[in-house]
Design a protein around this nucleic acid. Sequence first.
DNA 1: GTATGATTGAAACAGTTGTTTTAATCGTGC
DNA 2: GCACGATTAAAACAACTGTTTCAATCATAC
Lengths: 214, 214
Amino acid sequence: MTATPATCDRILDAAERLFAEEGFYATSLRQITQAAEANLAAVNYHFGSKQALILAVFRRRLDALNKARLARLDQAQEGNAAPELEDVLEALIVPALAFTHGSADDGHRFMRILMRAFADRDDQLHRALSAEYAHVMRRFASAIATALPGLSERRLRRQLDFIVGALTYTMAESTSSDAREIADDLVQFAAAGLRSAVSVRHPDGAPRTLEIHS
Amino acid sequence: MTATPATCDRILDAAERLFAEEGFYATSLRQITQAAEANLAAVNYHFGSKQALILAVFRRRLDALNKARLARLDQAQEGNAAPELEDVLEALIVPALAFTHGSADDGHRFMRILMRAFADRDDQLHRALSAEYAHVMRRFASAIATALPGLSERRLRRQLDFIVGALTYTMAESTSSDAREIADDLVQFAAAGLRSAVSVRHPDGAPRTLEIHS
DNA sequence: GTATGATTGAAACAGTTGTTTTAATCGTGC
DNA sequence: GCACGATTAAAACAACTGTTTCAATCATAC
């Protein structure tokens, strides 16, 4: 449409890039507005405060990512047959890594800030994000539970933490070139880990045996 | 010894706590010195700069953690027999989670800052930490390679990223109460994921089979 | 006891931060 | 053409930042 996007979007773009490069608090509004070719007061005018700007940057991306994940999960579940474990994991993982892989370095950069946000545990930013994540994670947890019965809710939650941790770390760490291959590896890795968890836990020191379940 | 520790250590303790609570850049030297009951100038006098203080906080903990990990790996390797995969993973994981579990909330808090540091990818802090990690990770990578042959170096590296990601995320997320149980779960999870990776990669859509290796 | 070096205390420095304010400008509907 | 709300511009604000300075204090060795 317009040759240059509206001021609001230019600010969001510049903020996302600079946040990823410098961090939230190391990035000043003056840097952002200068990079966005906007006036300093514009960010307070449009967003209200710097904190609100940060949240807006996150929402824009997370809405898209979670929508893509849930759409893929819906698709896997649409035949009334329950999807296989790998299909659920792919719905969780592939959109995330495809997003990392996405046009230019946008996604990759964004995931670096996402990790940063996870580290900021106790402030309002993390709480707002967790609320958004909680909804998605609950659906995935129950989808996994039906695909792989026999795990207590507590342990399932923990295994999901393992997977989300591996995913988040990988997204922040890996170059964007081979996203599909990494996603396949991670799905396989996560599925094997989950399946091993439904086996009876090995006694300490004893040689481990794998039990294959139905 | 002395009733109150030396100023240097009081500053390190206060800085670690505040960094975990507020973040590096949101924490001012005035907060730190006030909490440490030291003078503002003390931190520049003893450490040189704020950046050097941050590095000192990290070194103190990482030295201890990596030493513990390598000691446990040494012990597992000391009989000339190569240790089992689970033993290698335990050397990597258990000290880290035990550290999280450690006295009070120190370790748990510290790991939150560690994640923060990983997010700060491109500055000197991360480079200094990576150099320290690289040494340890190389030893663990080769120990895993002998315990579980058949993985290309590239894929092994990637699997290790999965594991470190799961570990780091879990350390930052979990409460410190049940560290041993979580460690057991994660070792089992990681071992199963690794073993599944040496199997031939499954063709898309085909039903997956588990191959049990020696 | 006194001299010497390490440490601390309090204040000041120069610079940057997020936010607010006021005036100027732009776009649109009448 | 004009008026009115939305947007932008530029400057000022008050507060806070890391760092430096310089005198006061402390501990220790002689």
